[in-house]
Amino acid sequence: MKVLVAVKRVIDYNVKIRVKPDHSDVDLTNVKMAMNPFCEIAVEEAVRLKEKGVASEVVAVTVGPKAAQEQLRTALALGADRAIHVQTEAPVESLAAAKLLAKVVGEEQPQLTILGKQAIDSDNNQVGQMLAALTGRPQGTFASEVEVDGDTLKVTREIDGGLQTVALKLPAIVTTDLRLNEPRYAKLPDIMKAKKKPLDTKTPDELGVSVDSGLKRVAVEPPAERQGGVKVGSVDELVDKLKNEAKVL
């Protein structure tokens, strides 16, 4: 079966972002960018399905600026067979991303589409669910285990109270949680090979989707900073402060 994986180019998760002084947005100039960590997990899962002989082809897709090709090349180096780049320099909200991905799903007809549960820039946690709704496919979100069994997909989901297992009728949509797997690193020879793998480029216009959004960011501010506190010298002092100063005991 064919597996489609959606990857997003985001700020590297180790970078602490800064808000622009005019509060219009966060400052991304010269900031290290990377594949969204949840998307790395999605790619890893797809590649493992291929290694197990369950998947026959892994296709990586991204919606984003020209530079997002880097993340597609990373996906190819990690084991995807080919890539699709829906290229636009405009900002793309989750709904528009889901609509574009729905078009790609329509064209590619994957049995399984894997996305991250959340992009760590917008922290939206929406696209997989939206894609499932738009394509009329069932969804297994926040997956920590995925098992293909004939035309059914068993997905174990991380929910607030513990774990839930559901059965989905394939074709289906899955979003990854942190404990689904531990992604591998790309090896140098694979990075070289990835440069020769096919990468197709499309535009939102060609797919007939507008990336306009009814949602506008009107300001971006830094969060209220916490005042740095004090160090206490002993457990006694800690208990005393909590009782008499903070009055929380």
Binding site: Q129, M130, A133, D160, G214
Partner: peptide, 23 residues
């Protein structure tokens, strides 16, 4: 913004052709 809310609300948004405002 629980795992239930996060799981279902984006479906409503997409099927209504509107954005979702998360959390």
């Amino acid at each position: 913004a629980s795992t239930t809310g996060k799981n279902v609300l984006p479906r409503l948004a997409a099927l209504s052709d509107v954005s979702q405002i998360s959390e």
